[in-house]
Design a protein around this nucleic acid. Structure first.
Lengths: 223, 223, 223, 223
DNA sequence: GATGAATGAGGCTTCATTCAT
DNA sequence: TATGAATGAAGCCTCATTCAT
């Protein structure tokens, strides 16, 4: 109808809800955030969430897609850049690709990245099998590609060692980024929260840390 | 009242509640776990939690103490062993002290460690200032001592770099251990969950990873 | 607007709604059926019901008219056939007139009759005075005529006895026909639901039952 | 605790809820009655229904048991009285047994009978399979016994004819009794609603009606 | 100490309806 | 005429907590 609304723009109400939900989910958690808080913050009717997303769980999934789509797109694009040159990215390059993809997600919305990290954390809980299944079904294949590259670059490691180091890596990323707003505030007390730029710095600090960790020689078990 | 109850032994009901709560909190999260689930699993009356712990939040704090006390004790003991010999523990030694302390916590109860990690994760959320304040007030000093040692062993790093690497470290520890049951099940599908021994292996894998990460040279920022 | 629409033909949308509503009302009840179900089944917009019928209650009344008009017409026609010959229909003839009128309603739509019976049942509830008033205002006079004939043929009965037997009769008719689809399915498990023909058989079984009941001698009360 | 509470007396709150629910269900229907109405009428907390009965559906089932238990008990007792004398009750006797059992139910509470009849009506709806299953599971066997006797006394009828006449019978009973309060008010306008005694009179009027109907010769189908 | 019952607040969801287009 | 979005009211249910016993 109106010219301003591009084809990519969904209903204003729906996107307002998404934005409000991202902020509140990131700050408080999913269960801790009520629909009243969301709709109040978005300044829409309480029933609007159910109208647009069916249920609170449906909203959570939409929020997930809102972050996971650009994340996977950015990772794929990063990998493709190497494929074009018929090169295979090394460990550091892979982590840079990941880092840039995460920055890209964060640029969409100040809370998209944090909420995504919280989501991935939740997905490991036994009760959240539905969420886990949703992510696997929608993004499992794409994620596997990246993991395959990573595995190759960590080749001297045994399968099991790789499994655990991958999750040490994920722990650093998920914990740091899901609490990024709190950590940035701790790091720069009183400063204007220019999180937009700060996330890139955080990730640039993280890459050497993880790179070294992944490359560390496997400890010979004594027992 | 009765002579049998030592000073350390709270009522059987209270300890049954603690155990049930640890398991459920670890598996589901704090908000996701209801008083009914806890009292039902503990096979005690619904009102017992409020009677013994005042409130759900009071129970959470008791659960926290239940894990944080032995953790800090074990860390202190580890540091004291070096002090006696008038030695200063290196980075690897410090991480070993931490690892052993974590194992010690886990040995108390199959879920004590996981729930503690979840608790520390929560403490970074803005809404959980009460929990954060409680931990700082009760354990802040003791934790600072360990951090001080760690800071010294990471001396070439700038203050800010150390801050972030410390949280990368915490991310690996917190994420891996708070999801340890799920990860162990993924790692050893179908195996008997001998988590008791497995935690030690996990931490032995983690120490080199983190050690290398902490020791990595600081990247020179280009911008 | 368009020439095709005769005076009897309301908009296609409206009649689609009526049909869907009849089916759902008959199967589920009025309160149990939602506007979403109706408009979804009719494949029209959710707002169409309010646009065409004003409200859900308005739709119910339209559905009522949709069945009550042909019912009363058929009854009147049946009575007229006797009047032309200057005869007075006996009890059995009256019940046959009623039965044929009911069959006529059913022939319009597979659910018209069932929903009408459900409607008459509802009309006896204290909260449904509005519905009751509507029926009385629109059809009270026409119904009275038939009841007057019936009363005459049951003359030996006292006024009060007639009142109750009339409602025993109505109970048989209303219960059987409002649940006709379920009963036919019970009677002929697995058979194709040729309800169209079956209703006539049911009524042919019912007439002797009711006829005998109405004609039974009045029990002398002992008290 | 208190001497007044006999062993049969459940919590006062629970029975107050049952009574309020019976009245409202009978007058308005199940779906039409809200938990707020029930708890408000019973003068108890809104959450009390869920505490005592789990859900609205659980309350409905409790209400059903509250009526179906004494009904089946009374029917069994009536049949036993014949068995003791090694007699087989005739059609009229069977209907008298049923009538007395219904009166017995009504004596418990002014609305127990009406709500039971409404319940049986609902049980024939396709959506209410759960309710139907519940009744069948709990009372199916006991009901079958009575139906077996009835079948024997209607022996000249074919199986199919018996099926339909049984439902004509049920229609009369269910419709009349579920709407008994409205009908009594219509029958005796302005009179004090001494329903307690009136139900017996209604049933005494109904027995000859149904008896004659059941005994009527089977019409020979012409087609 | 311990308990079963009860409660007020608030949770998510669904409803019929309305409104701008 | 028709529609997709939006809404206020109300629905049932669950929660942590309290209280009399």
């Amino acid at each position: 109808m109106s010219v301003e609304k591009s084809t990519y723009q969904t209903s204003d109400t729906a996107s307002r809800i998404i934005h409000a939900a991202e902020k509140l989910f990131a700050e408080q958690g999913f269960k801790e955030t009520t629909m009243r808080q969301i709709t109040s913050q978005a300044d829409v009717n309480l029933a609007a969430v159910n109208y647009h997303f069916g249920s609170k769980q449906g909203l959570i999934q939409s929020v997930a897609q809102h972050s996971l789509n650009p994340l996977c797109d950015a990772i794929d694009a990063g990998l493709d850049a190497f494929n074009v040159q018929q090169q295979t990215p090394g460990l550091d390059a892979l982590l840079q690709i990941l880092a840039r993809a995460l920055v890209r997600v964060h640029q969409r919305n100040d809370y998209s990245l944090a909420v995504l990290m919280r989501l991935l954390d939740q997905a490991y809980r036994p009760i959240q099998q539905e969420l886990q299944g949703f992510i696997r079904a929608e993004y499992g294949t794409r994620i596997s590609v990246f993991l395959h590259y990573l595995r190759q670059q960590a080749m001297p490691l045994s399968e099991r060692e790789f499994f655990w180091r991958l999750h040490f890596l994920m722990g650093s990323v998920i914990f740091t980024l899901s609490n990024m707003h709190a950590l940035i505030a701790l790091d720069q007390p009183g400063a204007e929260p220019d999180a937009a730029a700060e996330v890139e710095h955080i990730l640039q600090r993280m890459v050497p840390f993880i790179c070294a960790g992944m490359a560390a020689p496997e400890r010979v078990e004594a027992h």
